[in-house]
């Protein structure tokens, strides 16, 4: 069992332009309007590096920065785990297209941007951080796998960990290989749970069976297509509970197992023991 506190959150998705602007929607107090707005170019990067970043990296850096600020931690001031199922599909697609040509001329910049940890790299470059910045790629299990890894890292290292999970649709023709709805990312700064600590807490357990007691889909019906269609948006049920300040139990599918997630509004016991 892993217990962590949530120190801060970041969010970007259609109709969800930032965590603080989206809390009323996640709480069900304002209707959800699915309006896609591209994430802003990352101000933390130099103009040259900013030009080299595409949608996926911008998405990751936007939510990572918001969560860090909300946690009162300077961006890059703690360890991080980035996670994405699709990575940067635009870069991979461009490289694969080039490699299929008779005389391929590969762009060196495209090649170094093709690494799955590109966002983690740009995050550490943009923030000047020399702390650990890892990256996972776990298809539709990416949310659960990354939350498990980040929670375990916070507890074992006894240090805050920035978790940043993001996914953008793949371009044609790769899009057919993993249909992805919209551009969605979230970030949480997790810290080892301390008795009497403030803010929402998460309790995580892994179970090697698929069917669980918890919910998987968001409370708001309007958010369910997004949660069903984007690997990172499988987090929406958990994000709702954090925004509502309510106890709730949900699970994230991890192949034929699951991660059980209990959200508690403060550092009291988990929503339901056992």
């Amino acid at each position: 069992m892993i217990r962590v506190a949530v120190l801060g959150a970041g969010l970007w998705g259609p109709g969800l332009p930032g965590w603080s602007d989206s809390v009323p929607v996640l709480r069900g107090e304002r209707p959800y309007a699915e309006v896609a707005v591209p994430p802003p170019p990352p101000a933390m990067l130099s103009p040259t590096e900013r030009r080299r970043t595409g949608l996926a990296v911008r998405l990751a850096l936007t939510v990572a920065a918001e969560a860090s600020h909300a946690a009162g931690i300077a961006p890059g001031g703690c360890r991080s785990i980035f996670a994405t199922a699709n990575g940067d599909g635009a870069v991979i697609n461009a490289l694969l297209g080039t490699l299929a040509e008779a005389e391929p001329q590969v762009s060196p910049t495209l090649f170094h941007n093709s690494v799955h940890n590109a966002a983690a790299g740009y995050w550490s470059i943009g923030t000047g951080s020399q702390l650990s910045a890892s990256c996972l790629g776990c298809h539709d299990a990416t949310f659960g796998a990354a939350l498990l890894a980040a929670g375990a890292e916070a507890v074992v290292e006894q240090a805050p960990v920035l978790l940043c999970v993001y996914d953008a649709p793949l371009p044609f023709p790769l899009d057919a290989t993993h249909p992805t709805r919209d551009t969605f990312g979230f970030a949480l700064v997790l810290a080892p749970a301390a008795d009497g600590g403030r803010g929402p807490h998460l309790t995580l357990r892994y179970a090697g069976e698929p069917a669980g007691s918890g919910e998987r889909m968001p409370r708001l019906p309007a958010l369910r297509p997004l949660a069903a269609g984007n690997a990172a948006a499988r987090s929406l049920r958990m994000l709702e509970a954090i925004a509502r300040g309510e106890a709730d139990r949900m699970h994230a599918e991890m192949l034929d197992g699951r991660l059980e997630i209990d959200v508690a509004p403060c550092s009291t016991a988990p929503a339901s023991a056992g």
Binding site: H116, A120, C135, C138, A141, L148, L255
Partner: peptide, 8 residues
């Protein structure tokens, strides 16, 4: 058990 793929 849980499966993680790390890509750094």
């Amino acid at each position: 058990g849980p499966a993680l793929v790390v890509s750094t």
